[in-house]
């Protein structure tokens, strides 16, 4: 049985900013096409500026923990675990990037990269995170929108 969904403050702000209550796809309902997710998770389009902040935030995406990113050269401490994300939008489509964010294990078997939009199947999750995805649907869309700005060509 699915637990009642509670909108986080961030999702609420995002929804209001979008000017409407955005409909969301729950983590279990996300439809993959191979390792890609063609459909947006929310009605409201992603916002690259908010996505950039989520990317940096240690309590949200914390993408910088593992990925270097020249667009954030003034942020200290870029990780070395994953590939640098410079020009990532030249290498992957929007649907592929969404798929990598939602659950990177579909694209990269056995990867260390966490699944950012998955809320079950974890082993001993900390109580306060149990049953929740790392990012909200809107935050995933925001990060995807941000990644699409990382072009070199």
């Amino acid at each position: 049985m699915a637990a009642p969904r509670i909108l986080t403050a961030a999702a609420l702000t995002a929804a209001l900013a979008g000017g409407a209550w955005a409909a969301e796809t729950a983590p279990a309902e996300v439809r993959f096409d191979g390792s890609a997710v063609p459909q947006r998770l929310t009605d409201a389009p992603g916002d690259p500026a908010r996505g950039r902040a989520v990317f940096i935030d240690r309590k949200l995406g914390n993408c910088l923990a593992c990925h270097a990113n020249s667009d954030m050269a003034d942020e200290p401490f870029h990780g070395e675990i994953g590939p640098p994300l410079d020009g990532v939008a030249d290498r992957w489509s929007e649907a592929e990037l969404r798929g990598i964010l939602v659950n990177s294990k579909k694209a990269f078997e056995g990867t260390i990269m966490p699944a950012f939009y998955k809320d079950s199947g974890f082993n001993r999750p900390l109580r306060k995170f149990a049953g929740k995805p790392i990012l909200t649907a809107q935050q995933v869309e925001d990060v995807v929108a941000y990644l699409l700005t990382l072009k070199e060509e």
Partner: peptide, 23 residues
């Protein structure tokens, strides 16, 4: 693998030792 981040000790200390994970 444990937790919401779904990692094993080996993911960090065997596969990636020597590298920076943020700071």
């Amino acid at each position: 693998r444990f937790g919401q981040l779904d990692m094993a000790c080996s993911n960090c200390h065997e596969d990636n030792y020597g590298k920076m994970i943020r700071a």
